[in-house]
Write a protein that binds this DNA or RNA. Structure first.
Length: 281
DNA sequence: CCTGAAACCTGTCTGC
DNA sequence: TGCAGACAGGTTTCAG
């Protein structure tokens, strides 16, 4: 699930309410339950538990794919990786609601009246931090793609300082924060750039188009509350607007060429051979 | 600096 | 039906 738009959607729901639940802002953590210790990054479980109790939720936000919860003393940070999700429950879960699957709940922060925040993560790849300074967690992250301070010129300069296949570079969180496999494929398609194009072969005009394409797919993803691909993430419908991702063998909506799938850096990669010509052509 | 492979995990789907 | 194998939205580490 979780690329930038999905994390943003969850963060907004926790901050303002939505996705069928209330805001967690202002709630005080009374109890916690940790079912899988390795979800915790670095901090020993005992210290984590003793530090977090009694703290109040101040604000929920996002940096790259990190979901950041500012507490009264510290920052509680989640990275959902491949299968993580956060949900809010109040009172007793409705009987028969299959969306409230308890199977893979790894961590629960419980507030007053059994109102709680639940971290569910089937594949156990997700991670949780509790730190005073959030910068220590994402100090290596690249710029926010939607940030107004990122100009086409800056983006282009960054592209040409590397000699890497553009898909791999866009997936690199140190280069740009927030893109994953879906939004990268979709952005490259819209920009008409082959995923194997070498980054320093991209001129300023094409770089500007790529940045705009990235912003378009991310903005559209956020507007649609993210993309729901499997049972993990619910609510979003950006998947209905995919043009290449998981469209292998289907006709390109622009030129009717057949969408292809290749493997690039261990990731399934989808593109239109006609709209995104092979580098060197 | 760059690439590929492996590792961390569980669930789902495909094909024999 | 059963079962092996491939595959999955991410990231880190290591070898070449």
């Amino acid at each position: 699930m979780p690329e930038l738009p999905e994390v943003e959607t969850i963060a907004r729901a926790l901050q303002y309410g939505g996705r069928g639940s209330d805001s967690i802002v202002g709630k005080q953590i009374r109890t916690v339950q940790l079912n899988w210790e390795r979800s915790l990054e670095e901090v020993p479980p005992e210290i984590f538990l003793s530090k977090i109790l009694g703290q109040t939720i101040i604000q929920v936000g996002r940096r790259g794919k990190f979901l950041v919860i500012r507490l009264s003393e510290d920052h509680l940070i989640f990275h959902l990786r491949m299968s993580g999700d956060l949900r809010v429950e109040s009172g007793i879960p409705a009987i028969g609601d299959f969306s409230l699957n308890q199977n893979h709940d790894r961590f629960l922060a419980i507030f007053q009246d059994n109102f709680r925040l639940v971290f569910n993560d089937p594949r156990k790849f997700g991670r949780i931090w509790l730190v005073e300074n959030p910068q220590t967690v994402y100090k290596n992250l690249g710029p926010e793609p939607l940030g107004s301070d990122l100009s086409s010129e800056t983006f282009h300069k960054a592209l040409v300082t590397h000699h890497r296949r553009i898909k791999a570079l866009l997936l690199d969180q140190k280069f740009l924060a927030g893109l994953g496999n879906i939004y990268t494929d979709e952005a490259l398609f819209r920009a008409g750039i082959h995923p194997r194009k070498i980054s320093n072969q991209i001129d300023l005009k094409k770089a500007a188009l790529l940045l705009q394409s990235i912003r378009d797919v991310l903005t559209e993803g956020i507007l649609r509350n993210g993309a729901s691909i499997d049972w993990v993430y619910r609510g979003g419908d950006f998947q209905n607007t995919f043009r290449v991702y998981q469209k292998t063998g289907e006709k390109c909506q622009v030129c009717e060429e057949t969408i292809q799938r290749i493997r690039l850096g261990q990731r399934g990669t989808h593109f239109c051979p006609n709209c995104q010509p092979e580098p060197g052509d």
